[in-house]
Amino acid sequence: MKHSFKHFSHYLPLVGMLFFTALAFTQFYYEKTLLIAVSFAVSIAYVVWGAIHHTIHKDITVKILSEYIFVALIGLIMLLSVVFWM
């Protein structure tokens, strides 16, 4: 956690990306196509952010990358499961 505060600027793109995702779901809840696109985009962007972040810190491993992929995948499934039933 200390790391997070030390490298706060690294987290700004992540926080911004997540903020706009939440915003899209509040403002455009009736536009399924857009929400599906946003769900895919934020999931992919999350994995990319993780890969770049750990590459910068020179500690990227397959295990770490797979952790990001699975968190993103779980998030994507959850978002799509809700969007499809809206």
Binding site: A22, Y29, H53, H54, I64, V82
Partner: peptide, 21 residues
């Protein structure tokens, strides 16, 4: 070696907010 917990938590909290709204 592990993914950033702050990042994972931010992602999951955003999901919670989206799911609630």
């Amino acid at each position: 070696p592990a993914g950033r917990r702050f990042a994972h938590l931010s992602f999951l909290i955003t999901l919670i907010i989206i799911l609630i709204i």
